[in-house]
């Protein structure tokens, strides 16, 4: 009995140390953002601020383009999420419900899409967007981001649909629903939670994306990850304001996901997906 308790204690201690190691980096980022700019890069560094200061936040928010970039990040992510869900839901339904050869081929192709290095399609995409006359708009960036999130979304939605017994829409069809109606009115509402999970992942994929944003935006559609990287200019790097902006950009999603953690865990474990 005692040996069992001590094993328990050991396990907890192990876990606690992992947690500290895990929480530390982000905690240090937040603490650094609250130091005066010069202290932020002091040699040698300190963990806790010697003085607390919001100066870095002031500088970061006063930097032109920062606030619009938040709006751009949000609108890009929203457009991309909506598009992704709208395309993924019927596609995943078609794949899982009818088990056709075309469906299997499509799943394979969608998987292949996921293997495409963004850097390989980035530049052709830029040309495509500029031919369509939509470069430097949240829409163009959202379209690009959807190429990343759509395969994920299809994969996720397919797992959710698979969990729904097909007797459900059979019953609906007996009641006189068409196949489309059975899908839209009966099955889709049942996987509402799954759609929410899919949407969260699509949103995060877009919110955090860097390469396409770098290639596809200039001034009007610039998202925050680019602005964060912009603090590194040719002649210097403003660590202080950069940590402040990085904190501001991360805190909402971190809080948001902690609130919705159960759904996210469900999504990840179901589809084995990384957002």
């Amino acid at each position: 009995m005692t040996s069992r308790t001590s094993t328990r204690t050991l396990l907890w201690a192990l876990l606690a140390s992992i947690v500290v190691l895990y929480a530390f980096p982000f905690g240090y980022l937040v603490l650094t953002s609250l130091k005066p700019p010069t202290d932020a890069i002091a040699v040698p560094p300190t963990v806790l601020p010697k003085a607390w200061s919001l100066e870095n936040y002031g500088t970061a928010l006063a930097t032109p383009g920062v606030i619009p970039s938040f709006i751009n990040s949000t609108s890009t992510a929203v457009i991309s999420t909506v598009l992704s869900v709208l395309l993924a839901v019927p596609a995943a339904y078609g794949i899982t419900r009818y088990g056709t050869a075309s469906g299997r081929i499509f799943v394979m192709l969608a998987l292949v899409t996921r293997m495409v290095p963004p850097v390989a399609v980035g530049v052709p995409l830029v040309n495509l967007m500029s031919r369509a006359g939509i470069t430097d708009t949240p829409t163009a960036l959202a379209l690009a981001h959807t190429t990343i999130s759509l395969p994920l979304s299809i994969w996720l939605m397919a797992s959710f649909f698979e969990a729904v017994p097909s007797s459900l829409e059979e019953a609906a069809q007996v009641d006189g629903c068409s196949r489309l109606q059975a899908m839209v009115r009966v099955v889709v509402p049942v996987v509402g939670g799954g759609i929410a999970v899919t949407a969260i992942f699509a949103f995060l994929a877009s919110w955090n994306e860097f390469l396409f944003a770098l290639l596809l935006t200039a001034v009007r559609a610039q998202t925050t990850p680019i602005v964060i990287a912009n603090f590194q200019t040719q002649y210097g790097l403003q660590w202080g304001p950069m940590t402040a902006l990085a904190t501001l950009y991360s805190v909402p999603v971190v809080l948001f996901t902690l609130l919705l953690q159960r759904r996210i865990v469900a999504g990840m474990t179901l589809g084995a997906v990384k957002g």
Binding site: Y22, F210, P225, W239, A246, V253, T257, L258
Partner: peptide, 21 residues
């Protein structure tokens, strides 16, 4: 487990900067 979730939400750019720092 909840705490373990948070790095997943952080932008790779931010994580890269953070670790560089």
């Amino acid at each position: 487990r909840t705490l373990f979730l948070y790095p997943l939400m952080i932008a790779p750019v931010v994580a890269g900067l953070l670790w560089r720092f």
